[in-house]
Design a protein around this nucleic acid. Sequence first.
DNA 1: CGGAAGGTTGCTCCC
DNA 2: GGGGAGCAACCTTCC
Length: 568
Amino acid sequence: MPPATTNLARNVLMWFRRDLRLHDNPALLSALGQPDRIPAAQHLYPVYCLEIPTKKKCGHRRWIFLLECLHDLDANLRKLGSRLFVVRGLAPDVLPLLVQHWNVSELAVGECHEPFAVARDNDVAQQIAPHGCDFKSFPGRTLFRPQDVLARTGNGKAPLTMAAFSKIAERLPVPTPVDAPASLPSLGDDAITALRNALDPATFDALAGPQGDFSVPTIEPDGTVPELHLTTPIPAHEQSPHRGGETEALRRLDAYLSDHARVTQFEKPKTSPAAFYPNADTTILSPYTTYGALSVRTFRAGIDRVYRAAKGKHSKPPVSLLAQLYWREFFMTAGATTLNFEQMRRNPICLQTEWKCIPGETTRESHPDDYAMLDAWAEGQTGYPWIDAIMVQLRREGWVHHLARHSVACFLTRGDLYISWERGAEVFEDLLLDHEWALNRGNWMWLSASAFFHQYFRVYSPVKWGQSWDSEGVFIRKYLPVLRKMPKQYIYEPWKAPIAVQRAAGCVVGVDYPKRIVDHDVVVKVNMTKMKTSHAAQREQAAMENGDSNGGRNGTRERSGNMRDRPL
DNA sequence: CGGAAGGTTGCTCCC
DNA sequence: GGGGAGCAACCTTCC
């Protein structure tokens, strides 16, 4: 038993969320106490709450990546004589039980800033307070706290351009990563027994999982996870090449940073969306920063070391490697401080326009044709090989290049299908290993020219843009084998190939590969007109609300009042 | 306040 | 094929 501790005992429960690592983890380190000030914890209980089955928007490969991170975290904890307890259930339900029966005095977390996470954490803090347990949050998820950025904007609103954000970021202190612990406080000798004795058997079994020991769910070699009812085997060639975990994250970071020229000369718009693992132009570290298997503060420190070695000669924001971390902060700041950030309606920074398939406004039953188009896009069946190949890569690997995301997002929204960006965000949330709520929703607003970016007349061609990167069609041939033998002059537009050429290539359009679902050259003009009309309507509305005083400048639509002045 | 400058990553046409 | 103007025209930031 944990000794019948008095209230003076310091027992810490480390609640891991998006910080699945030992390096640069201030919350975890807090258990060690501080010399002469705070004693080391007597016991440390590392916990992850596995929220089954509520993560409906988390696809199979995302689950696998998360579980790999948990397995690696558990292994690394065990090297220090500890372990991870994976508790099945929602945090506000299960943490109070653990706190009570493990006699926990402090619950330590890495701070999260999403509105829903803040609400959840407040809930947990209230639930554990009656048990005499403090909720203590620590930095580490971001380089900068959204509040600290907001405090320097002058108007209390998140910056909407990278130039404005960078100006603030450059004046904020550079966070220093902390070392991984060399040792950890012990577990209670019989932490599991304590729970088994205190809880009724059904509750215990539900929390502890099928092994009865709070272990990480097992991933079978065929990719199935029986405990999570992920029972569809994934053939070897369709498994993601990106393996989760802190160990792999730090290996990839070191490998990337070892090429100093690549780091100092990095310019995002010059990296190719048609390059793919293991020869991608970019780091593919985003899945690791998403789950916190890699600390962004450690990442930044590594970039800074390379920059210093180059005596300050390096690319600059908004295109530099460091700026890629700034973009993450940029969207997290906006997401943490903008009302209704994840949707179009009642979102003060978002363009209002009449997309198809708006959540809550149409259904599959009311508009089956619109949703058929959405499905064709999501499944890689648009008939545009560049678009479809990207969606296949996304589905299979859980990662595609940022500019590839631009292409398919523009296609779904303002470019071709004029479908709600929220629907695209839902699909990405399901598929992306690196899904971050604020980045995903923010980038969908960007690409649909709903917020941040407004030059809707700049449209990506689903043919020309890919062609400019990969005229041979290597990328398409990899992910759409049906087009493998199509001559390069038709690989981006197979419908233009003479039927004899289609037959010779073994790919007849309409039989072996879909006909294109829209004619880009036609719909792009229609869509641009829709955007123009929506902007005009919005300016008119703003002029009305402002008594026509500013001619609609800064279109206030729902921006007036204090809608953005919400507490963090 | 008003207006100019600038905005990570477009396309087409022309030289 | 690489670079630059024109396309038609959005918003935020900054002075």
